[in-house]
Design a protein around this nucleic acid. Sequence first.
DNA 1: TTGATTTGACCCAT
DNA 2: ATGGGTCAAATCAA
Length: 362
Amino acid sequence: MEENRGLILYGCTLAKNLEENLPNLANQPDFFLRSCDEIIRVFSNVKERLSREVVPQPFDVGIQEWLRSGTGTNTENQAMDLLKAQSILGHSSQYHDAHGFEFIGHQMGGERVMEGDAQGLRAGRGLEIKPVDASNPSPETSPSQRRRKRKDEADKIVERVPAPQMGNLDLPPEDGFTWRKYGQKEILGCRHPRSYYRCTHQRLYQCPAKKQVQRLNDDFYTFEVTYRGNHTCNISSTTPFVSVPTPIEHGTIPQTTTTMQPPLSHWLSMEIKPPPEVEAAPTSFDTLAFQYPGGAGPSSSSSVAAGGSGSAGPSGPQFPVYQPVSDLADAIFNSGSSSNNSMELIFSSIDENWDTPGEKKN
DNA sequence: TTGATTTGACCCAT
DNA sequence: ATGGGTCAAATCAA
């Protein structure tokens, strides 16, 4: 099952890369085809594997269980899964991020830590996630409650993530959601100002998610990101199918199976090495390589993730058994190269076809 | 024109 | 009284 997860993540990653580079592929149909073939190969592999496994429950439920148990704060597990996936597919690969960090995932006393070999280790930095109290997942909902946040320390998750090492160092780490900055303050005892963000879709969807971003006093290259509230908007800027650590997800099963995004800065920052046959393609696979948001990558200059999207649908991660690749390809072809929402289009298209009968949408 | 960012002011918890 | 979180007008950028 771990291997399957890695394969799926790898497939999604390839699709994401393809989506991000659609504008560059207009004149390279051959490379586009090869990329599609690779995606097809990955998902076909998953399909075969799943079909061989005995699944004692409906497939989509199994996937949701899998997502619930295997994601969330386990970005390092995703890293290892992706590594395994490439191994399964016969790709020689090492697991590096865009800065050449070699990731080592391990667990320390309940706290999950992802360490990089270079500066990350030097600074004792890593992915640090502190779910505080899952039993009280009450997102802020009304203006009258907004001043009570300080009391409600339970409703937050604190992460430490590495800052971009190149490009605009002031950009906060990407986490897969789109955020709108609404404030910045100098904080007593803090060398750097604290920035306040809320979900871009706060108004449209009454999404209460917020985050604070602050550099550490003693490590300019590390952000401490505090998440509060739970996304209800179902709209993310990047890859679907993965869960982000939010208070509501710790402990109880969320009422809505809103698919959350991981701190994508972590697994998006991991370079996916091209498979040999793709490397040999006329166009280097490097054009599809991940680039760190805020660095030289395709990210927008804003504080948030670049275009692309990947709504997983409000009824939770639906996963295809049949037709996924053809639908994906159709969506890509129909989305147009200039669309910023092509992935959203893709996955909404997929959702339409993969919705399990009986499950209702929001 | 529209959406995002900046920044000073305001409000509330401590 | 003070500090942290948010608001909202002004400004910027696409």
